[in-house]
């Protein structure tokens, strides 16, 4: 029983973190049209930086090397990780958002991601290279004496709460004037610019916010697994997040949840239980990617807007049930009260 529960909690943590990644990408792409092709890099930076802030100095002579090792309390370390992801988003934005159109931006993000991947893998003294970080301290370990299952359940609840908060905030952005301007930028950046709005700033806001979202997911990932190495954030992972967003429905945060569930949980997890064929150890992971790719193709073909397309936004209506007057008469009478209903 404990094993099953432990497994369920792990899947749930996985589901919520993927959801957070997808929400971050939705703010960037679904709201604002920014093609970020290196989503997973922000997860890695968020996770790594939080970890090296929380971990003590690497023991001398252990053969393990990483920067910082400040032994800070987790809340500060987590904040540091999220800010680092946001900073990376800001830096890439400075290069890519100033002059480049979306397709070039996609190439720049992909290139930056690949560059950082090589740098972190080969630069053994940053985050311990290809070995990666392990023995990352558990955030809530000192609260009380946990059973392993109790700890997992507690962690799942924390993750769920963070997810719900981020979900509500993402919806709030969407419905706000800022979200509306973001969607206008997505639809036609030049026109928004011509109407006197600084589209660089708007896109940068989306870029940094989305990066921070993904960073939160990264912090949660490394805190839960207590380890992260480059093998855990290959380029392919970025496209799992993309698949989740496209299948679920870009621009719709509920779609992002459904997409994360379908892609990250059903396809990614379920395929782990296919029988292994010893002669072909890569077969199952490859089948996983084939299935995810297939899901994207099918959804783009049959439901290009995703399973849950973006919803139409409406505003208050006049005559509000009073059909005795025409719209012109209503307008002439003034509408100051109408919006207050």
């Amino acid at each position: 029983m404990d094993i099953i529960l432990g497994y369920v909690t792990t899947i749930l943590v996985f589901f919520f973190t993927y959801n957070i990644f997808t929400l971050g990408l939705n703010i960037q792409f679904g709201y604002t049209g920014i093609l970020n092709f290196t989503v997973i890099t922000f997860m890695a930076i968020g996770g790594y930086v939080a970890a090296v802030l929380a971990m003590p100095k690497a023991p001398a002579g252990s053969g393990i090397y990483y920067i910082l090792g400040l032994n800070l309390p987790w809340p500060i370390a987590a904040l540091g990780g999220v800010l680092a992801a946001g900073l990376l988003g800001y830096l890439i934005g400075q290069i890519a958002l100033k002059r480049l159109r979306s397709d070039y931006l996609a190439i720049v993000t992909l290139a930056t991601g690949t560059l950082l991947y090589g740098l972190i893998g080969n630069g053994t003294s940053i985050f311990d290279g290809w070995q990666g970080l392990f023995n990352v301290p558990q955030p809530f370990a000192g609260f009380r004496t946990w059973t392993p299952l109790g700890y997992s359940i507690f962690f799942t609840i924390v993750t769920a709460v963070i997810f719900v908060f981020l979900w509500l905030f993402a919806n709030r952005i969407y419905k706000s004037p800022l979200g509306r301007v973001m969607r206008a930028v997505r639809d036609d950046q030049d026109v928004v610019e011509a109407f006197g709005k600084n589209t660089f700033k708007i896109r940068m806001t989306a870029m940094v916010l989305g990066s921070m979202y993904v960073g939160v997911g990264g912090v949660l990932t490394i805190a839960y697994i207590t380890a992260l190495s480059p093998a855990g954030w290959t380029t392919g992972e970025t496209f799992v997040v993309w698949a989740a967003l496209l299948v679920g429905g870009r621009g719709n945060n509920f779609g992002a949840i459904v997409g994360s569930f379908l892609v990250a949980v059903v396809f990614n997890e379920a395929t782990r239980y296919l029988p292994q064929i010893p002669a072909h150890p890569n077969l199952i992971p490859d089948i996983r990617y084939v299935l995810i790719g297939l899901a994207v193709i099918l959804s783009v073909y049959f439901r290009p807007q995703g399973v849950f397309p973006e919803k139409k936004n409406t505003f208050f209506e006049v005559p509000l049930g009073d059909n005795s007057k025409t719209i012109e008469e209503h307008l002439a009478g003034g509408l100051s009260k109408v919006g207050e209903q």
């Binding site: 004037p177 509306r180 301007v181 639809d187 036609d188 806001t205």
Partner: peptide, 30 residues
């Protein structure tokens, strides 16, 4: 623009509202 450039995936109403200056579109307001 010489060729019409509406915001295609927004409603007509939204096309108008989003074009006004100072909508309070700052992150701090959100």
């Amino acid at each position: 623009f010489q060729i019409s450039r509406e915001y295609p995936d927004m409603t007509v109403m939204e096309n108008l509202i989003v074009s006004a200056a100072n909508q309070g579109e700052r992150l701090i307001n959100v």
